[in-house]
Simulated scan of single mutants.
Amino acid sequence: MKRRLLTAILTGTSALAATLPSRAVLGGECCPGTVWTPDSKALLFLDGPPARASTGIYEVAATGGEVTRRFSSIAYFSPKLRWAVRPGSGETTVLERLADGKRFTLPTYGADVTWNDAETRLAYTRSDTSGNYDRRATRVFVADAFGSPRAVATLYGGGVSGWVDGDTLLLSGKSAPGNRDRDLFTLNIRSGAKKTLRTALGFRGVSLSPDGARVLYTISFDSAARNGLWLQSTTGGPLTEINDYGAYRWRDAGRFILIPLKTDGGAHVLRQYTVRLNAWNTLGDLGNQVRQGDWNVSPDGKLLNYLSAKDGNVRVLTLP
């Protein structure tokens, strides 16, 4: 508590931060869970009757204006909108390349998939369906586009956190069902080389930087020495404890934005950490709060959208 109070004094609280101007681009509490298009020019969201004529994925420009339907079918779309992933009622999931409609199938049993940055390769998991989660076996599979899957790892109480690069996964989980602690580790799917980055009771909010060079994660309910928000290189090396707590998103490869936990009902503040400088600066406050952690930074790092707790509108602001 003393450390967090000192951090607030040094970096500024909501009382000292200027309110950042934002604009409502969607209203009527219609649209939680909006996501950015790859070009950072628009937001996508799921909607349907009675607000829209039919159910689909809709789009609104980051500046607001007319809402149009982008996709008529419901699916998991890849981050760069190159693929539609459509789980079936059984084991088969259909993956469709949107450029030409070409399809292939994988036995994911309804699970979504995690794409590498080029969206030429993917990973997914299949877990036991009974027993304590901490002891359930989770098998990690990888496949190239239009290729056959192969198992690369078995974890207990864990899963895939993302792709570090085209050949390397970031995973977390226990190596044996009876273990207390989990490992956060990288796995090269070609060579099988494994590197453990950290060991703890559990990892939350695991977030890779856009270039895969660094990872942010939270440890809680462990020892005092382990608990906290941490920054680490994905090649290993020393840890950096981030002396604050809250929700975080990467802005670009060298900066992330954090909204500190608020317990007094005040406006949420945007704080920015620059890795190279090991330093914070306060960007401003929102004038109200984010509802249910629903906020994201655009892929180009210039804009931020959030669901307003005050009126339920989706708002967009330009980041300083």
Rank of each mutant, 00 (worst) to 15 (best):
K2Q: 15
L5T: 07
L6G: 03
L10C: 07
A15P: 04
L16R: 13
L16F: 09
A18R: 11
S22I: 13
S22E: 02
R23V: 14
R23W: 10
A24T: 03
A24G: 05
V25P: 06
E29A: 11
C30M: 12
C31A: 09
C31M: 02
C31V: 04
T34L: 13
V35T: 08
L44M: 12
A51Y: 06
A53R: 14
S54A: 14
I57E: 12
A62Q: 08
G64L: 02
T68G: 07
T68I: 02
R69K: 15
A75K: 09
Y76Q: 13
F77P: 09
P79F: 00
P79H: 03
L81Y: 03
W83N: 06
A84D: 04
G88E: 13
S89C: 07
T93G: 04
V94S: 11
E96L: 04
A99N: 07
K102Q: 15
L106K: 05
L106D: 01
L106M: 01
L106Y: 01
P107I: 12
A111W: 00
V113M: 00
W115K: 12
W115M: 04
D117K: 14
A118Y: 03
S127D: 03
N132K: 12
D134N: 06
R135Q: 15
R136F: 07
R136W: 01
A137H: 05
A143C: 04
A145R: 08
A145L: 01
G147A: 11
S148A: 14
S148L: 15
S148Q: 14
P149C: 13
A153D: 07
L155E: 07
L155W: 05
G158S: 06
G158F: 05
G159L: 01
G159S: 10
S161H: 03
V164D: 12
G173A: 03
G173E: 09
G173V: 00
G173R: 01
G178L: 15
D181W: 00
L184E: 03
L187M: 01
N188F: 08
N188D: 14
R190I: 08
K195M: 06
T196C: 10
L197H: 10
G202E: 12
R204C: 10
L208H: 08
P210A: 12
G212K: 10
R214A: 07
V215Q: 00
L216H: 00
Y217P: 11
Y217T: 12
T218Y: 01
F221C: 12
F221L: 15
A225C: 05
R226H: 09
N227Y: 00
W230D: 05
S233L: 03
S233G: 12
G236K: 00
N243G: 10
N243T: 11
G246W: 11
Y248P: 11
R249I: 09
W250L: 15
R255E: 09
R255D: 04
L258C: 04
A267K: 03
R271M: 15
Q272M: 15
V275S: 08
L277F: 11
N281A: 08
T282A: 10
D285V: 02
L286I: 12
R291H: 11
G293L: 14
N296V: 04
S298L: 03
P299S: 10
Y306E: 11
L307W: 06
N313H: 09
V314C: 09
V314A: 07
R315K: 13
L317N: 01
